Simulated scan of single mutants.
Amino acid sequence: FIYTVQPGDSLFVIGARFGISIDQIQLANGLVETNIVPGQALLIPLYTYTVQQGDNYDSIARWTFVSAEALQKANPSVTPANMRPGMKVTIPELPKKPITALGYYTLRNPGLDQELIHNFAPYATYLAFFEYHISSDGSLSELNDSPAVQTAWRRRVPPLMTVTNLTETGFSPSLAHRVLNQPDVRNRLIDNIVQTISRKGYAGVNIDFEQIVEEDRDLFSGFLRLLKERLKPSGYVLTVAVPPKTNENIAWL
């Protein structure tokens, strides 16, 4: 189940509350350090939930992502009337769900690319090949990707071209701004993406524009909408990389 860190919490306090070791919490959440902050979501890798003060089946359902009805059915001895702090509630197993896994792959040389794509294909739904660079006139850089595209299709994992606003100095918000704010350039970029997908035999595209400034958010959404409309009739896939906003001080996230 998922626990949201509260003020005053520590991994020791949370571990003691739910009967789990600090090491288990760190391992399940990829935590190298023990410091945590209020509001942080932690996966608690247990199939039993320890009832807390003020809990009921509805509140436990929110932590465990299982319906209140399913929880009651799995715990007939713990009724809403006799539920007390410290009691153990069994979390029923959820039905398995399919997931979509997109893996990025930086092309190196045809021999190595073919070997690694062959090995990793069973674990991916899509492989996004890195990367095509955009220019201020809407053109795209070249990429020797044909062997990789063919290998991906042979291994039954659809390949995606990755289009970025990367430059020699990193992701460029000014480059994205120039392209998105000029309709003719934006449309030329869309044309070039669609043509490259068709010419190279890709299944679709991954748009990895990063550090876009806040004022361009609607232009970026509009660009994606137009691109989607162009791709949809041919059945091409559109995916978007979205950098996570980790705090309020990073304006471009």
Rank of each mutant, 00 (worst) to 15 (best):
V5G: 14
P7I: 11
S10Y: 06
R17Y: 03
R17F: 01
G19P: 06
S21P: 01
I25G: 01
I25H: 01
I25S: 02
G30K: 07
G30E: 12
N35W: 14
Y49A: 06
T50H: 10
A61W: 05
A68F: 01
E69Q: 13
L71Y: 01
A74W: 07
N75Y: 02
A81R: 14
A81V: 12
G86Q: 09
G86H: 07
T90F: 15
G103Y: 08
Y104M: 13
Y104K: 12
R108K: 05
D113P: 02
E115K: 04
N119M: 12
A121D: 11
Y123G: 11
F130N: 11
E131M: 06
Y132G: 03
I134R: 08
S135E: 06
S139N: 11
S139G: 09
S139D: 08
E142F: 08
S146I: 06
S146R: 04
T151N: 10
W153Y: 13
P159V: 01
M161G: 15
E168N: 10
A176K: 02
A176P: 07
H177A: 11
V179G: 02
Q195M: 14
I197R: 11
Y202I: 08
V205K: 00
F223G: 01
L226D: 05
E229K: 07
S234L: 12
G235T: 05
L238R: 01
T239E: 13
V242K: 02
P243E: 03
K245G: 12
T246N: 09
N247T: 09
E248G: 08
L253Q: 12
